[in-house]
Design a protein around this nucleic acid. Structure first.
Lengths: 190, 190
DNA sequence: GTAAAATGACTAATAGTATTAGTTTTGTCA
DNA sequence: TGACAAAACTAATACTATTAGTCATTTTAC
């Protein structure tokens, strides 16, 4: 067998996550990552396919972890209870891993099957929660888009300091959930 | 007086807007912009302060145009009518100028007074519209954050193809507006 | 009308990035 | 111990932004 690697893809990605969560996706470069790992930039090509390959791996990892967080939050809950649980899990994930979360929201055009499947995993959790609202078919799709819009918009604005003064943001989030909970029922009362 | 310039900041920014609306903010580089303008990269430094200066100018321009679009949409309207009007204006702007819109949503930390003031201009339009919902003080702030979250989230997901199949997106937006309109009244009934 | 000054575009050079090719080192197994 | 495989390295290329310094041009002032 070949010699045991001093560095592997897992370790590389872990370090990259630390980097983007601290500096943002913009701050990710093979040069800085290699320096962090005590290695020269070309060595990274033995483990990932360049910068695009690394970004893809991070996107996939982010989608997987987000899905997991949502699934864990939804288990054993239903209705408004489940909705609020996954909403809080969504926001918590975005706050704990701002860089990784940002990776999951990059343009999806030209994405391969694996990425699209991972993205669908996360959407599916939301869809199932909304089924408890008696939503099916197109209505469920619309409602899912509404919920995702509200959540994604909120956590993004929070992350970019878009809300200005950071006071009372928790309270704003609770208001958002009340709005969505009530609004979904109102907009989709069949 | 000095000689008339062959190139000026206005022209430069117009071309940069075309570039980012087509390629995204990532695709903006002084090299490609200079090539578009038939000039060598160092010449751009006579008109903007490097790439950071150009990005700042684009952010400012985006905020100004967004504010203007929202103001124009809100004039002469009130209540749900005004809410839907600025929502559609918001989405239209984001679709017509995806790159410029993205510039307005970059991290606000370390932004100067002028940028913050321009950002406030846009928020203020929303705030005034929500005053017609009998919201004041903290409640109006929370409601504004909710509305901005929903709008920003929707147009961002739409821009990144985050919704998957592009069918029925107009219908989803109408549902979102119904949800927000109804949800705001429910969440903020004092 | 002509000279001076201001301005913008240029060339050249530097430093940083990703990437590829080719070489060397190193760990594991026969 | 020696051969192999994998991963690290060095060197080189091509792109980025940026700065310094030079040249050309145009406007202004005399």
């Amino acid at each position: 067998m070949p010699p045991r690697p001093r560095l592997n893809e897992q370790l590389l990605i872990e370090e990259a996550i630390v980097l983007i969560d601290r500096e943002g996706p913009q701050g990710l470069s093979l040069a800085t990552l290699a320096a962090k790992l005590g290695v020269k930039p070309p060595s990274l090509y033995n483990h990932v396919q360049g910068l695009p390959g690394l970004e893809r791996a991070l996107t996939l990892r982010g989608l997987e972890e987000l899905s997991k967080a949502l699934r864990d939050a939804a288990v054993g809950r239903a209705g408004s209870d489940a909705l609020r649980a996954i909403a809080h899990a969504y926001r918590t994930f975005a706050k704990q891993h701002p860089g990784l979360y940002a990776m999951t929201q990059r343009s999806q055009e030209g994405r391969d099957e694996e990425i699209q499947a991972a993205a669908w995993q996360a959407v599916e959790v939301v869809l199932r929660v909304l089924e408890a609202f008696d939503l099916k078919g197109d209505e469920a799709i619309h409602a899912t888009r509404c919920l995702r819009s509200a959540l994604h918009g909120f956590v993004t604005l929070e992350a970019t300091e878009g809300f200005g003064l950071s006071l009372e943001i928790d309270a704003s989030f609770e208001k958002l959930l009340t709005m969505v909970d009530g609004g979904l029922r109102a907009a989709f009362s069949s």
